[in-house]
């Protein structure tokens, strides 16, 4: 399983970024290969409009099955994520990446209901 976290940094102890569209980083974890990949999304600050769908489009390039985030995407971003079938889990905004992963594994995160 490949998971994507919205984060404020690039390692397991980084704080999560509760925002989806304007998240600072993606932290991509591939469970099979135990490999980590990060993506710097900070350029999104220059987008006055449509940060959500833009970030969702970027996210789709990583082919992850699961997104773990804080507040959850807005309607436009959710519509984009729906086309890729990404499962979304929310409520991890105040955790570290490690805690968020553990919370996901133990079923403590809420599944995002969609648009």
């Amino acid at each position: 399983m490949k998971l994507i976290f919205t984060t404020t940094g690039t390692d397991w102890d980084s704080k999560m970024d509760p925002r989806f569209g304007r998240t600072q980083f993606f932290f991509v974890y591939d469970e099979e290969s135990d490999k980590i990949q990060t993506y710097d999304n900070t350029a999104i600050e220059n987008e006055a409009h449509g940060a959500g769908p833009k970030t969702a489009q970027k996210l789709s390039e990583f082919d992850a099955q699961v997104l773990i985030t804080g507040n959850g995407p807005g309607g436009n971003a959710a519509a984009v994520l729906q086309t890729t079938g990404t499962e979304i889990y929310v409520g991890a905004g105040e955790m570290t990446v490690r805690e968020a992963y553990e919370a996901y594994r133990s079923g403590a995160l809420k599944k995002f209901g969609g648009v």
Binding site: H49, G50, P53, T83
Partner: peptide, 19 residues
């Protein structure tokens, strides 16, 4: 598009009228 109001997702084009 300056406003991310239109995106290509795979083999489809998505339009966000509010944007």
């Amino acid at each position: 598009c300056n406003f991310n109001a239109i995106l290509k997702m795979g083999d489809r084009i998505m339009i966000f009228p509010e944007l």
